[in-house]
Design a protein around this nucleic acid. Structure first.
Lengths: 391, 391
DNA sequence: GACTTAAGTTCGAGTCTCGTACTTAATGGA
DNA sequence: TCCATTAAGTACGAGACTCGAACTTAAGTC
């Protein structure tokens, strides 16, 4: 009759423990270190239960116990901190002109991160070598999972890739799994989705449950975080906003149609509008434009028109999704307020009613490694959600 | 650090039982009646556990046991059916020109349903009286919850209403709660959201996990069901698609701006396009238009243009949300293929890549009571999700 | 140095799931 | 007709877990 809701796995008493363990972990992540007694109050669990759970977490090297801090009345508590030394998530990114890797621990600290340039046939070998290197350099701790971010359409199975521009990603998950000696499962994700997840955990939308991430390169892609979860859609292709019919309806898009949003606000449209050439990477191109903008009012003017179309598309997205924060990444970052300010204005003009407030527009703070970082965070997700046992 | 994910309530052993009970209930709802042994296979629970759980459900009059059906080898099983006589959800709708109520049991059967015309100051009293009547006529069974659907912006708390056109909904939840003698909690929901939920359980998108519902009256509203859950957004206003800048960018909207989608595809735009007058209700108006369309090619032509703009907006929504099925409700229903066919065409033209398939476009099958039915279904949700104990 | 306060642990009771063994109710062949 | 076979459902004990109460421990306070 109805669609599937909630987990469809039977819950055993061990599942119960996992659930409550995840409760403690999330409390430590969101509200910071706390004594067992405080944790009991925060989670609603009994003191005794928290004691057992923290014991298990300490054994798995997920938490560390600080010295007691005297000061108040009564026996002082010993604060428990989520350091997560023992549990690691690996995030990888396979992109058109580079590969990168981020090794993240459960405490949210980046243990290692590296980006290497790579193109064409050298790409996949470079990624596999990078993965091997990173894992080899940090032998301590258990690798909980790994995820590869790819600029393309990833199916709902989190493994197979339906379509990628300019690069081949068939068999990617299996290749990476082999490179890691099968130390953990490997999944594949869309780069915008991964970056969106990263922004909602480490970046400009940290702690925001409803966030939208927009990345600008040659194409335009979005990642949707709703209620803290990534929205994937029925086939995994949600957030493919580049070809929405928005902006200049006569603009010719790379896809052959007219009026796609990215034909108005993609990298090429921006460069044509300001009259500057494309450089080696989108980021370099945008930096050059930003540098020119401070001197040339015509460039600023062109960027303002671009920003207006950005705002127009964001108005659509805001009306549909009602996000709290919108993060702009990719080539938008160097352009900063040149695009943000007019985007805010056209967004304001397009908000439906007085009751609705404008979502906050922010710039990404994570740089090139946003996608890999988000992939790592997603690799660790199972622990925080209680799906993966800590012990 | 990160946003809240998953339930933040501690899980006790009773919670475990609720969870597994909900597992059995969902299996019965989705896959139909089954013997205890079959249920054990379907859910992954032990036979003994299923036995205990079914016992509890039978005691609460949630399931009924049929006679054993011989035929195969071995002892025949006794199929357990989800009749849900004992557990009821009440759905109400407060609309501009009518109020309605649906009393639904856990088995998904509509026990009672009624719609009464009401306007202006008589609206709220009519709703309260209707609620009292309906509950009085079905005294057996436990009322698990009630929900009121309202055409307006409902905040994330599921109680307070931020904005409604042409009607007052302040204190609505409390008033209904009082009318029901506090027999159950009452929440408030957006009518498009409720209707969307109804379509994904009883209507044209039954069993579809990613569905989009679009209602057409004077305004245009959407309800988003993603992974079986309603998407509400950060403030509860997700799906307010009427004022997206789509369609004829010069069309003047009731909100004072130009280019809103509903200025192109709302009821008034449609009537102006075909040159027919507005009747008492949107449905009547649309029926008159449909009647005229079969004779008048100019009307068909106008509806085709309208359908094109409908498809344009759906293309945007499909790109963002990737739904499996889109259900059109409200005034679109009488117009049927006059609008659907051109909408499908313009949607096809706008799909980004070969990898992506077009979502199926269907007409709502639920009629006037869609919203109230969905509200009732939502009132029962807590039982299926395991949040509300059955006993 | 005794008292107070609060953190953390120990322990027994209660609840739940699970696997195994058992009972029950049908079929099918001798 | 009777008995083996098959499969559904139940009874029961083991194991895991949470919880509250009692207890121990480590500080500050009088």
């Amino acid at each position: 009759m109805g669609p599937a809701i909630g987990s469809d796995l039977p819950a055993s008493t061990e599942g119960l423990r996992r659930r409550n363990t995840s409760l403690v972990l999330r409390s430590l992540r969101q509200q910071g270190p706390a004594t067992r007694a405080e944790l009991a109050k925060r989670t609603g669990l009994a003191k005794a239960t928290v004691g057992v759970i923290v014991g298990g977490l300490a054994e798995a090297a997920a938490v560390d116990e600080a010295d007691s801090v005297p000061g108040g009345r009564g026996r002082p508590g010993r604060p428990v901190t989520l350091t997560g030394r023992g549990l690691l998530g690996l995030g990888l990114e396979l992109n058109v002109d580079y590969v990168s890797a981020v090794l993240l621990d459960l405490g949210g600290r980046v243990r290692l991160s590296e980006t290497r340039p790579a193109t064409d046939a050298a790409r996949l070998p470079a990624l596999l070598e990078l993965a091997r290197d990173v894992v080899r350099r940090e032998p301590a701790g258990r690798l909980v999972g790994a995820m590869v971010a790819v600029p393309g359409l990833v199916r709902g199975d989190d493994r197979s890739v339906a379509w990628t521009p300019n690069l081949d990603a068939t068999g990617l998950a299996a290749d990476v799994e082999a490179a890691l000696d099968g130390r953990c499962g490997v999944s594949v994700g869309n780069d915008a989705n991964c970056a969106a997840y990263a922004e909602s955990h480490h970046g400009a939308a940290t702690g925001v449950a409803h966030a939208l991430y927009l990345t600008g390169t040659v194409g335009i892609g979005a990642g949707i975080v709703s209620d803290g979860r990534l929205q994937r859609g029925s086939t995994g292709f949600a957030g493919e906003v580049g070809h929405m019919p928005i902006g200049d309806s006569t603009a010719l898009c790379g896809c052959g149609r007219r009026g796609c949003w990215e034909a108005s606000v993609g990298l090429h449209a921006m460069l044509t509008a300001v009259g500057l050439p494309e450089l080696a990477t989108p980021l370099r191109s945008a930096q050059a434009v930003a540098a020119r903008a401070s001197a040339d009012p015509a460039v600023r003017e062109a960027l303002a028109r671009l920003g207006q179309d950005v705002g127009l598309g964001l108005a659509v997205l805001a009306n549909v999704l009602d996000p709290e924060v919108v993060v702009l990444g990719g080539y938008f970052v160097p352009l900063g307020e040149h695009v943000l300010a007019p985007a805010r204005r056209s967004l304001d003009e397009r908000l439906p009613s007085a009751a609705q407030r404008r979502p906050e527009l922010r710039l990404s703070t994570l740089g090139m490694e946003a996608a890999a970082l988000g992939a790592a965070e997603l690799a660790l997700e199972g622990v925080f959600s209680g799906d993966v046992p800590v012990t």
